[in-house]
Design a protein around this nucleic acid. Structure first.
Lengths: 227, 227
DNA sequence: CCGTTAAACTTACACCGTAAGCTTTGCAAT
DNA sequence: ATTGCAAAGCTTACGGTGTAAGTTTAACGG
């Protein structure tokens, strides 16, 4: 009963790259990406910071890895539906995923490392457009336009997300700086945003996201027909 | 010749908040936003890091300040042209400014502090849309859609900007990972992007930016008519 | 039972933002 | 001209960061 089973105090549950990345996503989700440091990540895993380097090369690899994991959550277009439906589903899925992991939007564009996950995502998207009759040039433009909108909108959205009570403070702070005489249009817009008329569409930002999304999809359809 | 005019070695050219921010923009432009530290900024101004705190409260105030300066470079819509022209000019101006200061795109959405500069920018934009006949709700949606696209596209663009020789390496690296059999659409798209056919439109990304921009503007016009 | 080896830990370094306290500078009032 | 004082500089220090280098521990195959 000596060595083999002794000192059960530390079973050492075998760290893996996967467990490291999963915990990193957890921490980022809970405390924001800035709070993700090697020491804190180690702590959360019951390990010293330097031990992490046995499973990842450096912090950049962790950032690449967690972005990749999240991108993997986005539903990939299938060829079973028409291109417009496929693109809408993809956009909405991406939007949802990014809202679930708000820190990704600020990170994703700075992580240009290609990975199988992202390559597959790109390929499926372009493929759905090509299957819908888009020439390659138009498909490329369509992809760029859609993704720019998705990232841009979501980035905007997560940056301006406040807790309900916070929202009042922010509005008040803004209101104090913005005299309605000097900036009538801002005042009008703020009034509109905070009005029940606008709040009625329940999820708030959701319908706002879909406004631009539908607009772009309709526009693409037109460009496609004009070919 | 004693005290008063002696020791001319250090004229002490009087640091100001303005000089601090201007130099901060310079440093960010030259070496990226990550290289902007209080110590390096002080060094560039011939001053110790802590002296900066006599002119700015903290680093966040510097970040807010330099974003504000850059936003101030964007041309504000005037009421002399129709809304579509005004929006196009604003978008193109913003795009140019962001390319001049690539670090801003990653920073602007995390700096939600309102300032006179930004308030004026918002107000002028909404104002141009209202003057063009947009109801407030549609103006708000139009603003959100356009800005999402502008930020999203530019963010994408600055992240994927490479030096000419680098471009080859990246393409090669990507090519090695992407077998044309496995990912035919990616391969096709890469071929298209690198082809002279696409490179012909000189500035490359410019026409790509304007594709989506025109698409959105046309779509907004349609929505406006449908009112 | 022991040697190998993977994976943990420890220490150390250069950087970061900034709080607290000290020193110099230049102007205003005497 | 001298002095007083406030503004704006400097110095030191603390707790944080990523990670290079070296050391110890634990698990497993022979």
């Amino acid at each position: 009963m000596a060595k083999k089973t002794a000192s059960k105090s530390k079973p050492r549950v075998a760290l893996t790259t996967d467990r490291v990345l999963a915990k990193a996503v957890d921490l980022a989700d809970q405390h924001g990406i800035d709070a993700l440091s090697m020491r804190k990540l180690g702590l959360a895993l019951g390990v010293e910071a330097m031990s992490l380097y046995n499973h990842v090369a450096n912090k950049d690899e962790i950032l690449d890895g967690i972005v990749d994991r999240v991108v993997g959550e986005i539903e990939i277009p299938t060829n079973e539906t028409d291109w417009k439906m496929a693109m809408r589903q993809r956009a909405i899925s991406a939007h949802e995923v990014f809202l679930r992991h708000p820190w990704v939007t600020t990170l994703i564009e700075s992580r240009i490392k290609m990975s199988p996950v992202r390559v597959r995502y790109f390929d499926a998207t372009i493929g759905a457009l090509r299957a819908g009759g888009f020439p390659i040039g138009l498909a490329y433009h369509a992809f760029l336009t859609l993704d720019s909108y998705i990232y841009g909108f979501t980035l905007h959205e997560v940056s301006w997300q406040f807790e309900p009570e916070e929202r009042q403070d922010v509005a008040a702070d803004l209101g104090s700086q913005v005299s309605p005489e000097e900036y009538p249009h801002i005042a009008e817009m703020m009034h509109f945003i905070l009005s029940p008329d606008n709040a009625r569409d329940q999820a708030g930002y959701v319908s706002e996201f879909e406004f631009g999304l539908n607009l772009i999809l309709d526009g693409l359809e037109e460009r496609l027909k004009a070919q």
